[in-house]
Design a binder for these strands. Sequence first.
DNA 1: CGTCTTTTTGAACAACGTCAAGTGGGGTGG
DNA 2: CCACCCCACTTGACGTTGTTCAAAAAGACG
Lengths: 229, 229
Amino acid sequence: MNLNASELAAIRRTPLFSQLPVSELEAILGNATHRRLGNGALLFAEGDPAHSFYFVQEGGIRLFKLASNGTEKVIELILEGEMFAEAVGFLGGQYPVSADALYATTVIEIPSQNFLQVFRSNPDLATRMLAALSMRLRQLITHIQALSLETAGQRVSRYLLEQAPGGAMPFSLPAQKNVVASRLGITPETFSRVLATLRAQGLVNVEGAILTLPDPAALRTWGDLQQQG
Amino acid sequence: MNLNASELAAIRRTPLFSQLPVSELEAILGNATHRRLGNGALLFAEGDPAHSFYFVQEGGIRLFKLASNGTEKVIELILEGEMFAEAVGFLGGQYPVSADALYATTVIEIPSQNFLQVFRSNPDLATRMLAALSMRLRQLITHIQALSLETAGQRVSRYLLEQAPGGAMPFSLPAQKNVVASRLGITPETFSRVLATLRAQGLVNVEGAILTLPDPAALRTWGDLQQQG
DNA sequence: CGTCTTTTTGAACAACGTCAAGTGGGGTGG
DNA sequence: CCACCCCACTTGACGTTGTTCAAAAAGACG
């Protein structure tokens, strides 16, 4: 195994692997390797044969799709300590999205092959896997709902509320504003404008890259008011 | 078991159960029951405890979410012979969407409990399940992409092309136009207008409720041209 | 036929995107 | 230490798409 103790521990903190016996975890991670990615480096492209899934050890990953006119649409942002592309091995097909690094990033690449073997003999792992997937399914459904019936204001306020740990703690955006904007399905300009109104109303404090939500409840109310109709 | 032979056969035509040994299939379907729904009848609501998944024996189901202002957004349309909500049992939680009948509909309600048991002892079923889920995951990702970077015209043309079996065969929309429009994330009015232009250009023929695409390739090209940017 | 619902059509409006010009801050080199 | 540049971000003016509201037309059904 190519991983050290602290890396193992990190992987064990994911819901999927938290209670897997050591022997099986080792079987899965047997061929795992590190991949170090510079800022913006491509990890895989949409359509590439899907042979591995990934754990973000440090940094962040952007999952996106390319439209035929060349513009990119961010589907999801994966941050430190999270896993992604776990599901792809099961169709033996291709990655449905492209992935690149939000900044200097280290991922652990885990070939799906070993995982599939352990999976077949460990019902508990299988169940966890299903749970993880169905959770992601729900997130995507929420995402769809947000895109199709929320205004830009609603999406931004909701996103900020999701980011704020606890509710009023300071936090920083996980990526550049144009990336976050794309994740929200809006342009950087619109994102900037919404943030400006929010700041003007005292609902968001901006100090450099650090954001604070002085009154999360008020922000939530404001978001609801944005509703069109 | 409450199901007759032809019902069993129908269920066996789903990818998930196509190769499951009879004994296990019977174990899963042991407590299955019929549910007959009138036009528009509610099967379950978002937030209801999720105890079962469903097979559409006859008719169709609309999965939707309610916004806080009361408007409904269609997430997916489930037609005859398809299954849905397979995944919910694994989180033991609540349905993330509401479901009602598109027209008079019969579904087979399968308690997830039995399924979970068989699942734990049958790695093959588990693998199929994962495959099914990751396929649905991909569909949702496509859906998200469509909503966030395709114009109304593109979405309609793509949807029509998806519906047309083979390419040029006549077909009818699976639901009323306002339902389909919502599924596409547009208003009925916009849907109607797009269809009107399409008809004017000879790309779609409308005879009552029956649509035909005389030239699928041309329709696809037209859709690509709608691209904004 | 008359009524009710679905669909179509029309016109005005609003939200968001686009294009373009500015602002500001952090890093680099003088 | 300061000046400059570069890049991300902001701000402004304008155009387009799709929504909204309203009303007419077309089906469905008794």
